[in-house]
Each structure stands twice: as structure tokens, then as C-alpha cells.
Design a protein around this nucleic acid. Structure first.
Lengths: 122, 122, 122, 122
DNA sequence: GTGGTCTAGACCACC
DNA sequence: GTGGTCTAGACCACG
């Protein structure tokens, strides 16, 4: 379900956060579905439970999951995080656009790229 | 000429690299212009010369500047780095677009954002 | 009669205690009225009877209910707990006021908030 | 500077967060002042550095301090956290008021308490 | 020296 | 069984 990339220089817990938030955003894991337990996932990835714990903690802070001791961790209802995710993503888009313009990429090139992606998503 | 942001989580040397690469890309510092010496810049920013040294190394590795022993560091000719910078920036733009679409941001919203920035740059 | 919030970080037994103590304080359940049996409530909420048991123990310890073996649990006479509940609640109010003042919230803002709530309760 | 209460059932890291946020809010520690290093504070309190780390991480997330590897942790400018602190504190006040009213504390008593504190702060 | 990450192993309350 | 906290000790990049 999840693979780690040890060549990636980002911390492991961050990779896990990214993987799961993706799965949740894309609807692969759905509302109120149970997340793998801290211990089992730790064994599966053969890393320390504390690292998983840290990742789950971040996922909870961002509203992707909720946990309750003794029961487990579960995926949050979509409405709880979808808004923040949108603004986060559009902020990144704005930054990328600003940088491209600053660096002097021609407007036509930017338009072409944007249109490609917008067409592809229809 | 350069200000440091201590609340920025990135290493200081990386901030310096970013600041100078920006200045160079935007043409504020031009081809073959002399970079401030490691020692004077270190004093100006009151940080360790090693940190400046490290930043200059990175700038050289990325092709933004070249150094000649005993004389100092100088800005590279534009053609040496401008292309790589462009592809780097457009890659980031593509990634941001893909993610926005994946997450389900409406096409109209993306178009509006893009147009805003393209208009602003005219 | 009672709903659980699984996103609440507090233990379930504590939520149950809070819900019932509220119902009792507000007079929804009255003196000497019988509490639902541990088993039926456990089934209704589909949780472990031990959890209900624990909640009832706490309620008894706090003086909200009393139980007699073989007969069930019953709501205590109001006078038994109402005083302690009042002091508890006013202590919390004092703490909140002190903190607001310490942090530097303007007196006018505090007054406005207080008046809003006092008006609303008329 | 900081004392731990081992009878307190809250986690240690949370106590530390509370102590420092108080010191910062009350201006005992001022803008850009250096926080004790993770290791020295750990030794002083004779607890594990990880626990301090966790506390500092929370303080940073809440905007009270900022940290940079290799340099240390520092108190944020007041403007960075004062707003969030105010809303947090007024929310707590509102909750306390609501509860007092729900439980049936007389309006006159609430008014008396509020006036006491408001007078005391003049 | 600093903060940040990770492991190994333990204990706790809750369910 | 679950998540949550804590300790002990290690390694890393940064300054």
C-alpha cells in the first residue's frame, strides 16, 4: 500500500504523510475507513512505530485523519480538509506562476503549458 | 543588498544561494560582474564565512558564478544557466497544475489565477 | 438520548459522564429517575459494557447518581451535587477572565462578550 | 526558570509548552531572545531531550518561537502570535460563560465575578 | 554547539 | 488490541 524511498532526502515521516494525504485526497481511502494501526504499519515498512506515530500526528493536525486511543485512527470526512487542501494547492500554483514570470519565461509558453493540462483534465 | 530571514526554516547558505541566483536571473547583477568577497559579505551579514563559502560553492556548481583563485567570484554569462533555470521553473509549474487538477480545483479557478498573473506581467 | 463523537479526543467514558451530568444538571433527567441499564446502553451505543460501567462509576463518585445492587442506578437528589457543580463552573469562569486580562484583551471586549451571553440567557 | 509538576497528569511536554507560552505572553521573555537549548533544558529538568524537542515543536507550531538548526530557538515577534492567543482566550471565556449559564448560576453572581476581575485590572 | 530525525524498548490509559 | 508519552542513545546537517 505504501512504499518508502530511502534515496529521498526528506524525513521518512514526511513521506508517509504525503503518501497518505494523497490516498485520502484521491479517494482511495474513504471517510471513516480505518487506517493501519501504528504498530502493524511500522512492521510492514520495517521502521520504528514512533516514526509512524509522528506521521499520524501530522496527518491528524492537518485534518486528514482522527485518532482515538484504544480504537485506532480513521480517515476524516472530506469536508474537514478539502478546503485547506485547495488553498494550499492554489498557493503553490501562484508561486510557480510568479517565479516563471520573474525568471522571464515567455507568456506564450506558460499559456501553452496551462492549456495542455486543462485540456488533459476534461 | 541581501537580507536574511531567520524564521525561514531553510539553511542560511541556501537562502543566500536563492537570493543571488534571483539577482542574477533578473539581471540585477550582470555577466562578469564581481561578486562581493566571502569575507566582506560574511561581515556584512554577521555570519560565519564558512556559510558564505558554502553558498558560493553551490552557486558555482549550478553555473551561476565562476571563481578564479586569488581574484574572486564572478557572474557567469547568461546563456550558461538561463536554459536550465527555465526548465526547472516550468517543471514546477507543471507539477502545481497537475496537483491542482488532481485535487479537483475547478478549471475556471485555475484559468482565473493564471490570467491574473499573466495580465500583471504585461 | 446520547450521541458519541469519535473525533473527540477525550475517552469515551468521559464523554458519557459529561453528557449525563449535563442532562442531570439541566433537569432533563430528574431526581430518583432510573438510569438506563449498563447493558442496554452499551448495546444502544454499540460499545463495550465496561466503558459504560466506568462512566457510571465516575458519575456515582461525583454524586450525580447512586446505585443499588440488583436494582440499577438512579439520579441523586439535586442538592447533593448542585453546589459543587456551581463552584466548579465559576472557578473555570474566573480562570478564563484572569487569563483574558493577563493576555491583554481590552476590558470593553470582555464586557461585550459577557453582556452578549447574559442577554441571551434572559 | 521552569518547574515540572509530576503530580499533574498532563504530559510533560504540554506543561513545558504552557509554562513558556505564559512567559512569552507576559513578556518575561522578549522578542528574539534565545530560548534555552534543547539539551541544556533537558539536563536542567533532568528529562529526555526528545521531550523538550516535542515541546519546542509545539511552541513553534503555535507561533511562539522559531527555531533554526545550528543556531537555536528564539522567541517570535509578539505580532506573530498575539492575535491567535486572543481568540483562543476569548473562546475559553465564552465557553465558561455558556456553561455557567447552562448550569443555572444566577446572572447577578456572574456579573459580580466579572466586575471583580475587571476592577482588579484597572 | 545547535535543532531535527530515527531507533529500540518501555509504560500508560482506554477499549 | 489501540494510540500516546517518555527514555536512552544515536546520527545528521548546519553554523
Amino acid at each position: 500500500m505504501i512504499y518508502l524511498d530511502y534515496k529521498d532526502k526528506r524525513p521518512i515521516y514526511e513521506q508517509i504523510v504525503e503518501k497518505f494525504s494523497d490516498l485520502i485526497v484521491k479517494g482511495v481511502i474513504v471517510e471513516n475507513e480505518k487506517m493501519p494501526s501504528v504498530r502493524t504499519l511500522a512492521m510492514e515498512l520495517s521502521i520504528n512505530p514512533n516514526t509512524i506515530q509522528r506521521a499520524y500526528q501530522e496527518l491528524e493536525r492537518s485534518g486528514y485523519i482522527y485518532s482515538s486511543a484504544g480504537k485506532g485512527s480513521f480517515v476524516s470526512p472530506r469536508s474537514d480538509f478539502i478546503r485547506s487542501r485547495h488553498t494550499e494547492v492554489t498557493e503553490r500554483l501562484k508561486a510557480a506562476l510568479k517565479e516563471a514570470i520573474d525568471v522571464g519565461v515567455h507568456r506564450e509558453i506558460i499559456e501553452t503549458i496551462v492549456n495542455q493540462y486543462l485540456e488533459g483534465s476534461k
